[in-house]
Amino acid sequence: MITEMNSTEEHNNGWQASVKRILTELKDKPGALLPVLHAIQTEIGYVPGESVTLIAESLSLSRAEVHGVISFYTFFRSTRGGSHTLQICRSESCQAMGSRELESHAKQSLQIGFDQTTSAGDITLEAVYCLGNCACSPAMRIDHQVYGRVTAEKFDQLVSALRTNVIEVK
């Protein structure tokens, strides 16, 4: 087992060190799995499939149990997403204020569907069921930032600002 881990270590980009550190910090918490997965995704951006074995061993769970939890919760992803995650609320309050149209506009403008990433790799589009922003529907979220009363124009502005920033960062 140790040999296997060492050989994997050479082939990854350092996420293994992060996962190990996170496990050391959090493994003794009662019901540690969700906090562990959150910490890993916050740091690495996703939960690498290869980390399941490490997590399972550390928390005395089976790999099936860990995989089962990752796949149950929509928030956890097993592959890297776009640089930004853009979520559009599909719930009733937003529907009453035109979220169905906003959803079509977003898909058309980004040329992707839900749970897909743009070809440039900058945006992953997701559906979300309520952001608690119902008093200012329709709502969407870019990473952790929520936006209210989103029109097609506002959507375009926000996406454009996002893309400008991405270039600036480079």
Binding site: G31, A32, E65, F72, Y73
Partner: peptide, 20 residues
């Protein structure tokens, strides 16, 4: 982690315990 069902009290408890 984005599961509506966890608002149901017993599902919430399962989730707190680190399960589906």
């Amino acid at each position: 982690a984005g599961a509506y069902i966890c608002g149901e009290e017993t599902a919430l408890l399962e989730s707190l315990e680190g399960k589906r």
